[in-house]
Amino acid sequence: MPKAVWNGTVIAESDDTVVVERNHYFPRAAVREDILRESDTHTVCPWKGTASYYSLELDGIRSPDAVWYYPEPKPDAAMIRDRVAFWKDVQVVD
């Protein structure tokens, strides 16, 4: 079962991930809410749409913009609605 691990802590786990461009998109409900912090960062993907970000924060450690999601994905990316993906210092393992 895919897990997202940050600083030795499992922050998301689900057997219902969608893989797009080699990134596992986890159901939003599978992510620990207590470590997510809203971010003002946004980026644009030509085919997925505008991405929003969360930073991670736990025990005084912070990872800015380590989580992204598409609140309103374009039609071709509808499969990632209500899902998040990870990068930077977050490892996704099976």
Results as ranks from 00 to 15, higher is better:
29 A>H: 10
44 V>Q: 15
51 A>P: 05
63 S>G: 04
75 P>F: 02
16 D>L: 02
77 A>E: 06
56 L>V: 07
93 V>C: 07
5 V>Y: 03
34 D>C: 06
38 E>S: 11
86 F>G: 10
28 R>P: 01
80 I>Q: 11
1 M>Y: 04
2 P>H: 08
60 G>N: 09
55 S>V: 03
62 R>H: 12
8 G>R: 02
17 T>E: 05
31 V>D: 05
8 G>H: 03
12 A>M: 07
24 H>C: 11
12 A>F: 03
10 V>S: 07
4 A>N: 06
4 A>T: 05
61 I>T: 14
45 C>T: 04
66 A>S: 13
75 P>L: 07
49 G>M: 09
65 D>G: 02
20 V>F: 03
21 E>W: 01
91 Q>E: 15
68 W>Q: 05
61 I>S: 13
18 V>R: 08
85 A>L: 09
24 H>M: 00
62 R>K: 15
50 T>V: 14
10 V>H: 04
77 A>L: 04
14 S>I: 04
69 Y>A: 06
6 W>F: 01
24 H>E: 14
12 A>I: 04
8 G>Y: 01
57 E>L: 05
22 R>M: 03
20 V>W: 02
50 T>W: 00
22 R>N: 14
39 S>M: 04
84 V>R: 13
30 A>E: 10
53 Y>L: 09
68 W>E: 06
7 N>V: 00
78 A>E: 15
15 D>H: 03
59 D>Y: 07
4 A>D: 10
50 T>Y: 00
27 P>A: 10
62 R>W: 00
18 V>H: 02
3 K>Y: 01
44 V>W: 12
39 S>L: 05
39 S>V: 01
89 D>N: 14
49 G>H: 09
54 Y>N: 10
19 V>W: 01
39 S>C: 03
84 V>G: 11
18 V>S: 01
59 D>S: 14
39 S>K: 05
26 F>K: 12
75 P>V: 06
51 A>C: 06
55 S>M: 07
48 K>C: 01
13 E>G: 02
75 P>D: 12
2 P>M: 11
24 H>L: 00
43 T>G: 09
73 P>H: 05
42 H>E: 15
48 K>F: 02
3 K>Q: 15
8 G>E: 05
3 K>V: 04
35 I>Q: 11
21 E>A: 13
13 E>S: 14
85 A>H: 07
22 R>K: 15
44 V>D: 14
54 Y>F: 15
33 E>S: 14
54 Y>E: 10
16 D>P: 01
14 S>G: 05
79 M>W: 00
35 I>M: 13
79 M>K: 13
11 I>R: 08
12 A>S: 13
84 V>F: 05
66 A>T: 07
1 M>P: 08
38 E>L: 13
29 A>Y: 01
14 S>F: 02
60 G>K: 10
90 V>C: 12
68 W>V: 04
86 F>H: 11
93 V>Y: 03
60 G>L: 12
85 A>C: 13
72 E>N: 13
68 W>F: 04
72 E>R: 10
79 M>I: 06
11 I>Q: 09
